[in-house]
Amino acid sequence: KKIKIKIKVYNPETKEVLELEIEVSEEEAEELAKKLAEELEKKGYKIEEVEI
């Protein structure tokens, strides 16, 4: 079964909002969402919402 992940991120420095969407297997979904959120935060983005 495929799971659709939508991530909306906001960069306070540039006032930019990015929306990302990807489909992955159920097993990958939670781990991938967690890794993406961590990487984006390292780059200065503030995570507003992660929906699985």
Rank of each mutant, 00 (worst) to 15 (best):
K8A: 03
V9I: 04
E13A: 11
L36S: 02
I22R: 11
I47S: 00
A29I: 04
E13R: 15
K42P: 00
K43Q: 12
L40T: 00
G44E: 01
E23Q: 08
E19R: 14
I47Y: 01
Y10I: 05
G44A: 01
K15P: 02
E27C: 14
V24Y: 04
V9Q: 00
E30T: 08
V17Q: 09
E31A: 11
E27N: 06
E38D: 08
E41L: 05
K35C: 11
E38I: 10
E30Q: 09
E13C: 10
I52E: 01
L18Y: 09
E41A: 09
E51M: 13
E51I: 14
K15D: 10
E21I: 12
P12A: 15
P12Y: 15
E48A: 05
I47A: 01
E38M: 14
E30A: 12
I5Y: 12
A29K: 04
V24H: 05
K15W: 10
E38S: 09
E23R: 06
V50P: 01
L32P: 01
G44K: 02
E16W: 15
E19K: 15
K46M: 06
S25A: 14
K15N: 11
E19L: 13
I7F: 15
E28Q: 10
L40V: 02
K2H: 06
L18I: 13
L40G: 00
I52R: 01
K15L: 06
T14Q: 05
I3G: 07
E16K: 12
K6N: 05
A33C: 11
V50H: 01
Y10M: 07
T14R: 14
V24A: 09
A37S: 11
K35W: 14
A29N: 02
E19F: 14
Y10N: 04
E39D: 05
E21Q: 10
K8W: 12
L32A: 12
P12L: 15
A29L: 03
E30K: 08
A29M: 03
I52F: 13
L40S: 00
E48T: 10
A29H: 04
N11W: 06
P12C: 15
I3Y: 15
I22F: 15
L18W: 09
E38G: 05
A33W: 14
E21F: 12
K42V: 03
A33Y: 11
L40Y: 09
I7H: 00
P12F: 15
V50T: 02
E26G: 07
I22L: 10
L20Q: 02
K15V: 03
E38Y: 15
I47F: 02
L40H: 01
K4C: 13
Y45S: 02
V24R: 03
I5M: 07
E38H: 10
A29R: 03
L32C: 13
V17K: 12
V9A: 07
E26V: 04
K42A: 10
K43A: 06
E16R: 09
E27L: 05
L18K: 07
L40I: 02
E13Y: 15
K6S: 04
K8N: 02
E16S: 09
T14V: 06
E48Y: 10
E39I: 10
K6D: 01
L32I: 13
K46N: 05
K8P: 00
L18H: 07
E21T: 10
E26S: 10
I7A: 03
I7Y: 15
K2P: 08
E31D: 04
L40D: 00
G44Y: 01
A33N: 01
E31P: 10
N11P: 02
S25V: 13
S25L: 13
Y10E: 02
K6T: 03
I47K: 00
L36V: 06
N11M: 06
L40M: 03
E23P: 08
E26K: 06
V50C: 10
K8S: 04
E19D: 07
E39C: 12
E31I: 08
I5T: 00
I22V: 12
A37P: 02
K46G: 05
K46L: 14
I22T: 06
K15C: 11
K42S: 10
A33V: 12
I52Q: 02
V24D: 06
K4Q: 06
L20R: 02
A37G: 03
V17A: 07
I47L: 03
I3D: 02
K43D: 03
K34Y: 13
K4H: 10
K34C: 09
L18D: 02
E28H: 14
A37I: 15
E39G: 03
Y45N: 03
I7D: 00
E51P: 01
V17T: 06
E51F: 12
E27W: 07
I3M: 15
K34P: 02
E30L: 10
V50R: 00
K15T: 06
K43Y: 12
E41V: 08
K42G: 07
I7L: 09
L40Q: 01
L18R: 05
E39A: 08
K2N: 06
I22A: 12
V17F: 09
K34M: 10
V50I: 07
E23M: 08
E38P: 00
T14C: 07
I52H: 03
L20Y: 13
I5N: 00
E21G: 11
N11I: 08
V9R: 00
K4E: 02
K8R: 15
E19S: 12
I22G: 03
E19C: 13
V24M: 02
N11S: 10
K6W: 12
I47C: 04
E31H: 08
V17L: 04
E21Y: 08
E19Y: 14
L36Y: 10
L40N: 00
E38V: 12
Y45C: 08
N11E: 03
K8M: 04
E31C: 12
E38T: 07
